[in-house]
């Protein structure tokens, strides 16, 4: 591979790793998902121009963030200038410095909530489940519009329209950007979990001959679930969903025969089940069960999946399920 090709690949990987945090940080500052994404994309374009010549910086994420934040600051200053011009000129000229300081402060704030905010906004209930899925994959999964379209078997223009409309809906509905806590947060999670599971199932439904992009939706969903579990570690159903997905994914290889025909659970070659994913699923399930009173729907489904995962033969499953 040429040096330039290698740099380009590296930039793609940096984007995959950093884009969600980058957009999340920018959303906090500019309070507009569409604008935040544009600013992040502009920073990416700058990187594509500069890095092949300068080399990849030591901290590529920080570089992208600094570049995007400078643009965000320019934007905010321009905007506040315009607003001031349009309102009475004599109004709070004195507060200008403090306003500028606030912007600087906002930029350096703790970034811990950025990802959670971004997930909650992308999965806001004002959006349809499909719009949430497209937006989530784009903003949090780092997928391109073309990749999402291929995975969902729809034309690229459909996904492009869907995300544009979703961003407009969010802006028009004036969706708040504060991260809710406690019961309010818990109330918002079902719409997030629904989207992650929808993405997972879309990938799980893919068959052998399908585009690999479709199959990779399972990995994308698992990754989103794991990220969410680390963001809200005390929410039982998040662990329940992760457990359910890990356990289902553990059987992904065994459920299709050599010529692409589906193999039902009881006929599957259990030696092809993925022991690592089963183990991870069981750990997540234990976590969910220790937090949940009573068990939620994802945790319950995961508990059933776990009965299958732990049984060596189909016959043993039934007894395991009866006694548990």
């Amino acid at each position: 591979m040429s040096a330039e090709g290698a740099t380009r690949k590296a930039i793609e990987s940096v984007w995959r790793i950093e884009s969600a945090r980058l957009i999340g940080g920018l959303v906090r500052i500019v309070r507009d998902v569409g604008l935040a994404e544009d600013l992040a994309q502009e920073a990416l374009v700058t990187a594509l121009e500069c890095w092949p010549e300068l080399g990849i910086p030591d901290k590529p994420g920080a570089w992208l963030m600094a570049t995007a934040k400078n643009r965000a600051l320019d934007h905010l200053r321009r905007k506040s200038m315009l607003e001031r011009k349009s309102t009475a000129i004599e109004e709070d000229r004195a507060t200008l410095p403090s306003h500028a300081t606030n912007i600087e402060q906002a930029i350096d704030e703790d970034v811990g909530d950025d990802l959670l905010r971004l997930i909650l906004v992308a999965c806001h209930p004002v959006l349809s489940a499909e719009a949430r899925a497209a937006l989530t994959l784009r903003l949090l999964g780092g997928l391109t519009t073309a990749e999402i379209a291929r995975a969902f078997l729809v034309p690229e223009a459909t996904i492009a329209q869907r995300t544009v409309r979703a961003k407009r809906t969010l802006a028009e509905a004036r969706v708040p950007f504060e991260v809710p806590r406690g019961a309010e947060l818990a109330a918002r999670l079902p719409s997030v979990l629904e989207v992650i599971y929808l993405i997972f199932n879309e990938g799980y439904a893919a068959t052998h001959g399908d585009d690999w992009m479709r199959l990779e939706l399972c990995d994308d969903a698992l990754r989103l679930g794991r990220i969410l579990a680390s963001l809200v570690p005390d929410e039982a159903e998040v662990h329940g969903l992760v457990a359910l997905m890990e356990l289902h994914a553990s059987r992904a290889r065994a459920r299709v025969g050599p010529s692409g025909e589906p193999i039902l659970l009881l006929d599957q070659d259990r030696s092809r089940w993925d022991r690592l994913l089963i183990q991870r699923g069981l750990v997540a399930l234990a976590r969910a069960e220790s937090l949940a009173h009573p068990l939620g729907p994802y945790t319950l489904q995961a508990a059933i999946a776990a009965c299958h995962a732990q049984a060596r033969t189909g016959d043993e499953t039934a007894s395991a399920a009866t006694y548990s």
Binding site: S13, I17, L276
Partner: peptide, 14 residues
Amino acid sequence: WLWQVKDMDEALEW
């Protein structure tokens, strides 16, 4: 470590 990544490039970047 055992990592779940998109490709070798992402692993390299991590």
